[in-house]
């Protein structure tokens, strides 16, 4: 019984059912294990790795320069920015707004630099449901190619104090 000491010798061979079960489970573990690196080679969507250290003030300065240079409009007080096609783009996370609104061209590949200038935030692109952690002090580079025209909402899914549920932003993809 599980509640009392076992027989003096309990190191006994497994039955065939147990051997079969453990073998199946182990093979399945190997399949799962191989899947991730394999998808890294053949898959088109993989987790971004490119990261640089950046002081929040420096990131804010660089991103602000980028916004000033490429602003094409304004929506309810938030600048709309059209980055050079296939170039660098910046997205500032702060309480409680994603700045700026980015206008991207379908089929072009952008290097989107994301960082926070205050707390930790969660970049959540809807309705695609792609999610990335955004930390102050780290310039996280998401290399992305928009494939569908439309408007995508950005929300924050890392709690960032009382205004967290009103932190939004937008990416517009045009032809």
């Amino acid at each position: 019984m599980s509640l009392t000491a076992p027989d003096r010798i309990w190191w006994k061979p497994l039955g065939w059912q147990e051997r079969l079960w453990v073998t199946i489970a182990f093979v399945w573990c190997l399949v799962l294990f191989l899947m991730m690196p394999l998808w890294g080679v053949v898959g088109k969507q993989n987790n971004p790795v490119e990261t640089y250290r950046v002081a929040p003030v420096d990131f804010f300065r660089i991103a602000s320069t980028f916004i000033e240079k490429h602003t094409v409009g304004n929506e309810r007080g938030v600048p709309v920015v059209r980055p050079p096609a296939g170039g660098e783009a910046y997205l500032i996370a702060r309480i409680w707004q994603w700045t700026p609104i980015l206008e991207l061209k379908r089929g072009e590949t952008y290097r989107l630099h994301v960082s926070s200038i205050d707390l930790q935030h969660g970049l959540s692109i809807q309705p695609l449901n792609m999610n990335f952690q955004v930390l102050p002090g780290y310039d996280y580079v998401l290399t992305l190619t928009p494939t569908q025209v439309g408007e995508y909402s950005l929300i924050c899914n890392e709690y960032c104090l009382i205004g967290h549920h009103n932190m939004t932003g937008k990416i517009i993809v045009k032809e």
Binding site: N47, N129, E158
Partner: peptide, 12 residues
């Protein structure tokens, strides 16, 4: 916990 799938799950 699968690396790539986690992008569609993290913090949801």
């Amino acid at each position: 916990g699968t690396m790539q799938l986690n992008m569609a799950v993290h913090n949801t």
